[in-house]
């Protein structure tokens, strides 16, 4: 997961710089460092690129507005993950409430992560495999899906994932194995 960060050595420098200056440059660096992580998390919960984009923007705005009060008791990733999941839960509630009063023609799109993304180029074997992978991922139970994503993509240690998901390390390892096994079966 490579990101372009502007002249900062690590996340602590970015946070300090933003806390002191509130500059656009430090805000940009902060967003770039975590944009994939936040966007991917939001996408897993919403199953929709546009919704994930909107939520990601709001997550960063909230994070930047509250960065001055960030005490560093947890990692930035953990903190951002909590903000993102909370926003996704709120978003889903709002969306389901609105859908009670309006016929949602995009219901299909809501569950098909790749439906809007398919173009002739993507129909190539590799792209299709990627699309299948995300579809399979979206079908996993939430705990298994999140454990897999946080461990496989974000490479978080089990202890940190345990704090985020409220599951024991042993339980997480079992979830991880189940997720990998199901994905392998689905993509075989």
């Amino acid at each position: 997961m490579s990101t372009v960060v502007l002249q900062y050595d690590n996340e602590t420098d970015i946070v300090k710089e933003y806390q002191n200056t509130k500059s656009e440059r430090s805000a940009t660096s902060f967003v770039r460092m975590y944009q994939q992580f936040v966007f991917a998390t939001a996408l897993r919960f919403t199953q929709n690129y546009d919704d994930a984009d909107d939520i990601s923007q709001e997550v960063f705005i909230k994070a930047l507005n509250n960065l001055s009060s960030f005490k560093g008791e947890s990692s930035i990733k953990t903190w951002l993950y909590r903000i993102t999941t909370n926003m996704c839960i709120t978003f889903k509630r709002k969306k389901s409430f609105v859908s009670l009063f309006s016929k949602d023609d995009k219901a299909e799109e809501f569950f098909n992560i790749e439906s809007n993304e398919m173009n002739p180029q993507q129909k190539l074997e590799g792209e299709e495999f990627t699309a299948n992978f995300y579809r399979a991922l979206s079908k996993l139970p939430e705990k298994q899906r999140e454990t897999f994503a946080l461990r496989y993509f974000d490479e978080l240690p089990y202890e940190e994932i345990s704090k985020l998901l409220g599951t024991s390390v042993g339980g997480l390892k079992a979830n991880y194995f189940q997720a990998v096994k199901k994905l392998a079966v689905y993509l075989k």
Binding site: A27, V31, R32, D53, Q57, T130
Partner: peptide
């Protein structure tokens, strides 16, 4: 494969959007 490409592509302009909104 570059499995994270769609996510990377989609989130590329996030910093610009966030700064605009801010």
């Amino acid at each position: 494969m570059d499995i994270e490409k769609p996510i990377r592509d989609r989130s590329r302009n996030l910093s610009v959007k966030v700064n605009d909104k801010l």
